[in-house]
């Protein structure tokens, strides 16, 4: 655990050593604001909740999280530091977990900095703060799921742009899989079991429920097991790639 913490600390400091952290946080805050107040019609809706705010998170994450995740492993492979890291007394699993936690914590920081929205809605009305907390927890869990996908894809290539595109695509599939658009494609030929499975993988459907204040343990379990699955795959990818 000590090694995980040391690696996470180094990685997180790495985000703030470059303008990346600042750029990401500013863009994230600007876009959440713009989406909430213009597309989400926060004021016009006249409701004391943050649905208009949370509704756009999956779409923001779709682009922004692969951008944060893409450097995690691709950069190490490109600069050769992976050879340094993997010959230090650190296991691959510790490195994978440390890097993931740092990137996830970074998203958490960005998410926490949206607190003015929460203040605003409390000033303007009397929202159900339990629902809002649920929304934040759900959004953070979903960010973790996106991040684990991005980290895993980043380990597959030494090119950060490719890592970005692949992880954005995979994230897109997970986001969209519950929509009728995707399900129609499967319904034509696949048995109901497969259609249900695909539908159940959807981030949108899961997040929709959480956003309304319903923290279903199954949804929490879904995001956590998805993170675990992609981190496990990440370990395997790192191991396979370094010996090839």
């Amino acid at each position: 655990m000590r090694n995980v913490w040391i690696i996470a600390k180094r990685e997180l400091a790495g985000y703030f050593a470059t303008p990346l952290a600042l750029v990401f946080i500013v863009i994230f805050l600007a876009l959440t604001g713009a989406f909430t107040f213009y597309l989400g019609r926060f004021f016009e809706a006249g409701q004391a909740d943050l649905e208009a705010f949370f509704r756009f998170h999956p779409w923001l994450y779709l682009i922004l999280i692969p951008a944060v995740a893409m450097r995690l492993w691709a950069e190490e492979r490109k600069t050769g530091t992976i050879e340094l890291l993997m010959t230090l007394p650190v296991t691959t699993a510790q490195a994978v977990l440390g890097k993931f936690l740092a990137a996830w914590a970074f998203c958490g920081i960005a998410l926490a900095l949206t607190f003015p929205v929460w203040i605003t809605v409390n000033v303007l009305g009397e929202p159900d703060n339990g629902v809002i907390v649920a929304g934040y927890v759900g959004s953070f869990l979903m960010a973790g799921a996106f991040m684990s996908i991005g980290a895993c894809m980043s380990a597959m290539t030494k090119n950060q742009v490719i890592a970005f595109i692949i992880s954005a695509t995979v994230c897109f599939l997970f986001t969209m899989s519950g929509l009728q658009l995707v399900l129609n494609f499967f319904q034509a030929w696949a048995p109901a079991l497969i259609v249900d499975t695909v539908a159940s993988l959807s981030f949108l459907v899961r997040f929709d429920a959480v956003m309304r204040g319903v923290i279903d343990l199954r949804d929490v379990f879904f995001f956590i097991s998805l993170i675990a699955f992609f981190l496990f795959t990440n370990v395997i990818v790192v191991e396979v790639k370094k010996s090839a």
Partner: peptide, 9 residues
């Protein structure tokens, strides 16, 4: 390692 890789930032 060859090329002495280090974390540049």
């Amino acid at each position: 390692p060859e090329g002495a890789p280090t974390y540049g930032d």
